[in-house]
């Protein structure tokens, strides 16, 4: 049984649940109370503590889809496909959250809901690619064929992301660049709040991932039982 599954341990699941709960509560405190107002944008900027971690989780989960796809094609073990599927679903949700929070912030900060800026546009394209990934999965009945084709699409989609970014980058950019290589341009307390949020979101992502994987496994067991009865 162990060979077919990932992280199938209820102790780990509950540990992650409590850790992410503590992380999220601390993160909320840090984002709304601990971190100071921003000099020019005032209170509006605080959405940044939800926007940046959501975008991070989205990118992380699409990386997992990519790795899961490669590993599935190499090993043909179903658990890799389940991992990729679960991660893609969570990634699409967090990608949507990043787009929506970014848009809400953009209205007061840039005076517009949307601009065709590299990071925004790349995130939108990411959302489109992985929404297509999920649609593709629903359109194929046969299990191993679905896993193979989805793995190929997940790989191609991920390889495309840097090229999309580069292609849009040669347009004028208005996205605030918070991190550059030699300096970090935010106050230390803001950075601390951001790091807490990043850790909390990552833990929450892992928690959701494990839950989604075990849901998928239960579904498969149910299918197998139905087959045996019939």
């Amino acid at each position: 049984m162990n060979r077919t599954r990932f992280l199938d341990s209820s102790r780990l699941t509950s540990a992650l649940f409590w850790l992410s709960l503590v992380g999220i509560v601390t993160g909320l405190y840090a984002a709304f109370i601990y971190a100071p107002n921003e000099k020019t944008m005032g209170v509006v900027y605080r959405i940044f503590y939800f926007h940046v971690p959501s975008a991070w989780v989205a990118f992380l989960s699409f990386l997992v889809v990519f790795v899961g796809g490669i590993m599935y094609l190499r090993t043909r073990e179903r658990r890799w496909d389940t991992l990729a599927l679960s991660s893609a679903e969570i990634g699409v949700v967090f990608c949507a959250i990043a787009l929506i929070t970014g848009s809400i912030w953009g209205k007061p900060a840039w005076g517009t809901w949307w601009t065709w800026e590299p990071r925004l546009t790349t995130t939108l394209v990411l959302w489109l690619i992985y929404a297509a990934y999920l649609m593709l999965r629903r359109m194929i009945e046969e299990e191993s064929q679905r896993a193979r084709v989805a793995a190929v699409f997940g790989i191609v989609g991920f390889v495309d992301v840097p090229i999309v970014f580069m292609s849009i980058r040669w347009w004028r950019t208005v996205h605030p660049i918070v991190f550059t290589i030699d300096e970090i341009r935010i106050a230390p307390s803001m950075l601390a709040a951001l790091l807490i949020a990043l850790v909390a979101f990552t833990l929450f992502y892992l928690y959701l991932l494990i839950q989604r994987i075990s849901l998928e496994n239960v579904g498969h067991e149910l299918e197998a039982l139905k087959q045996r009865v019939a």
């Binding site: 297509a132 593709l136 359109m139 194929i140 084709v149 190929v152 699409f153 495309d160 999309v164 292609s167």
Partner: peptide, 27 residues
């Protein structure tokens, strides 16, 4: 070749293909 395996084959091709094609379209 991917979309021909799906249930709604003609519909799936542009949905899968266009997002990936964006760099070519822009350039």
């Amino acid at each position: 070749a991917i979309s021909v395996n799906t249930k709604a084959r003609e519909v799936m091709l542009p949905i899968l293909f266009f997002p990936v094609l964006i760099p070519i379209v822009i350039a």
